[in-house]
Design a protein around this nucleic acid. Structure first.
Lengths: 115, 115
DNA sequence: GATATATAGATAAAATATCATATATATTTT
DNA sequence: AAAATATATATGATATTTTATCTATATATC
């Protein structure tokens, strides 16, 4: 992500990263977005059977922890895996990519993100 | 660590790993043991200013999540970084090793682990 | 007004720290 | 040698803190 000035920030960043990874829903969301590319909350809402507020909160945690980037276009917010990812976050994504867990089918309603 | 039979176990193992990493005390303990090698709870108690029960519980979590191994000798239990570590846990240890956080001085009272 | 997203408030669930106690082993005393 | 004591570790119970979910509502755009 970025370089750190003090040890406080470095530790906080590490804990924010591991905290984001310590939730089944967020692991599924990361794997799903990594697999399918940029999408909106509403696409996740249609694919996963979860409340919008729940998804929005989890996505915010993934964004704030450096895993996702956002591109807004009108009323849609497209979330995708952030590039570049720092080393450890990338290693985590690769670990999640290798996890043999099943994901729901992608039911996309937003237009493809072209920005 | 080991190979998994079903997706349930694989996800549980991943979450157990990230959960173990999502705690400041455990990150410090991992870094400390990685730096100094095998040691007992009582050494941690002398080095860190923490209650024995607190350290014992955190060490148990690190052991159960695959980061530490234990060798018992009399009334002492020597904990060290488990070998071999699977890829992701090793990457996590390397990340922690690189964290610029300060650690207390090692105040060792147990004899050096020779088993 | 309808849709997409974000967030506040309330509640439930999970994790942590502390106090107290149990267990096992080693050492000292008698 | 047996009994008592000390040491190292583990764990049960409880209070506190943190996190997750849901309901409801707010904000922004079409």
């Amino acid at each position: 992500m970025e370089k750190f000035i003090n040890e406080q920030e470095a530790l906080e960043d590490f804990l924010k990263t591991t905290g984001a990874l310590y939730d089944e829903t967020r692991v599924q969301l990361l794997k799903f977005i990594d697999k399918h590319g940029a999408m909106c909350i509403c696409d996740l809402q249609n694919s996963f059977n979860m409340l919008q507020s729940r998804l929005s909160r989890h996505i915010k945690i993934l964004k704030d922890s450096g895993f996702l980037s956002i591109k807004k276009d009108g009323r849609w917010s497209y979330y995708s895996i952030r590039t570049p990812l720092d080393r450890f976050r990338l290693q985590a994504i690769e670990e999640i990519r290798a996890l043999p867990i099943s994901l729901p089918e992608l039911k996309k309603i937003s237009s493809d993100c072209e920005i």
